[in-house]
Design a protein around this nucleic acid. Structure first.
Length: 392
RNA sequence: GGGGAGGUACCGAAGUGGCCAAACGGGGCAGACUGUAAAUCUGCUGGCUUAUGCCUUCAAUGGUUCGAAUCCAUUCCUCCCCA
């Protein structure tokens, strides 16, 4: 471990820092004891190779991981290539498609490209494993042994299972294996701490039991709150479409952030900036948006997005809008379709008929209209789409 | 193994031979109002080159019928009760 530089902070100071923002810590005392050992701790985080598009929801946990790294601890990443065969029963996922090795590698690469915006990627701070490393070679007898360490009653305690059971929804037996596999991961990498979102509490606690059974000191479990998505109600997720991706462009990050509710803004402040909103809600939101852009695209981009936003919406100045090249003579529906933001022409017709489309501020409500486009005209379609037109 | 109840659009849920592209609610989108917020009100919400038109949809396949989400047969899937 050459050049290793351990934190200068005392265990107690580290504890305070690390615990802030967590929803649950199992347990503070144990964590303190581990920190007092004065060695780099192994901090586990599982990643699902099916979702290569990371968003702000993931960033909450990743930021916590970064904090550990900055204090001198080691991030242990598990790519759940094998657990993915089952699919985490958390949430309403049914059966997931099996991914081949090639896809998984690809997804993992994308994952770390994005996670790298938050994590310290240097090799002495980050270790990566695929859980097929140990799960794929287990025999059926091994699996039975693993399964015998958990009772059905305990499984059913689990929130999602309990709900589904009571609601008369199907639960497949193999879903019970998921927490066991994840817990087994902790044994195999000798995790000191496991991080996760609040839906992971149960899974992570299973890891403690399995470690204890294996004669290891149980890992601490640190649970971070779930970040609600743009709608302010549901957990941020790609499939719900209520997310801001880490690789979204500055304009989108800013725009999407501005559309969240005031109530949600406070939570985002807490989880994403470790701060509190101040001043007029709109200004506070602009600041939030600016800082989020800055986190992923740099300070300059943050300031620029704000400026553009203000120009665009406060001053109605669209000079900075993207340019869209179109034929000089177009059917209005086709014109809007060119923006690529709508799923069907029926959708576009509806939008037009309802007055959601304007050109240079002029509402177009006839979905049969043919237009002659003058370069430089501004097309607005719905709330978010604004482009400047040019002729082909 | 026996008995019962089901599978309808993004979700929940009506519909049991034509008036069904399918009630209603939620969600989503849009308009008004705003701070591109919330709340509220209104409209839209399968697809199609522009359509009192065509095409695809009510688990799957086949059948009855002028006509099927609705009737029949077979298959697949789920839940509950009993063993």
């Amino acid at each position: 471990m050459s050049g290793f530089c351990f934190s200068v902070k005392s265990p107690a100071e580290q504890l305070e820092l690390l615990v802030t923002g967590c929803e649950t810590v199992v347990t503070r005392e144990e964590l303190l004891k581990k920190l007092e050992k004065n060695r780099p701790l192994r901090i586990k985080l599982g990643a699902d190779p099916t979702a290569p598009d990371l968003h702000l929801g993931h960033s909450v946990v990743l930021r916590k991981m970064r904090q550990f790294q900055d204090l001198g601890h080691k991030a242990i990443f598990i790519i759940g290539d094998y657990t993915t065969l089952i699919g985490d029963p958390t949430g309403q996922n049914k059966t997931r498609p099996m991914l081949n090795a090639e896809q998984i590698k690809q997804n993992a690469t994308t994952y770390f490209q994005q996670a790298g915006k938050i994590l310290d990627m240097s090799p002495d701070k980050l270790e990566i494993h695929y859980n097929s490393e140990w799960l794929a070679t287990m025999s059926f007898a091994d699996v039975i042994r693993l399964a015998s360490q958990m009772s059905v009653a305990r499984m059913l305690e689990r929130d999602t299972f309990e709900k589904r059971y009571k609601a008369g929804e199907p639960i497949s037996v193999h879903e019970f294996l998921y927490p066991l596999m994840q817990g087994h991961d902790s044994v195999c990498i000798k995790a000191d701490v496991e991080l996760g979102g609040s839906d992971q509490l149960f899974n992570n606690l299973v890891g403690r039991d399995l470690q204890r059974d294996a004669g290891q000191e149980p890992q601490c479990v640190m649970i971070l709150p779930i970040l609600e998505g743009l709608d302010g109600v549901e957990k941020m997720s790609k499939s719900k479409g209520n997310y801001i991706g880490l690789s979204d462009n500055p304009t989108d990050i800013f725009g999407k952030t501005m559309s969240i509710s005031d109530a949600l803004m406070e939570k985002w402040y807490r989880l994403l900036l470790n701060a509190q909103p101040t001043g007029h809600p709109m200004d506070a939101k602009k600041t939030l948006a600016q800082k989020l852009v800055a986190q992923y695209h740099g300070e300059a981009a943050g300031a620029q997005s704000r400026e553009e936003f203000e120009k665009r919406f406060s001053k109605q100045d669209y000079s900075a809008a993207e340019t869209l090249a179109v034929p000089a003579e177009v059917w209005i529906v086709e014109l809007v379709e060119k923006t690529g933001k709508f799923k069907s022409r029926g959708d576009i017709r509806r939008l037009i008929q309802q007055g959601g489309v304007t050109i240079d501020g002029q509402k177009i409500t006839d979905d049969k209209a043919k237009l002659t486009v003058n370069p430089g005209q501004i097309l607005k379609a719905g709330k978010l789409v604004v482009v400047k037109l040019s002729c082909v």
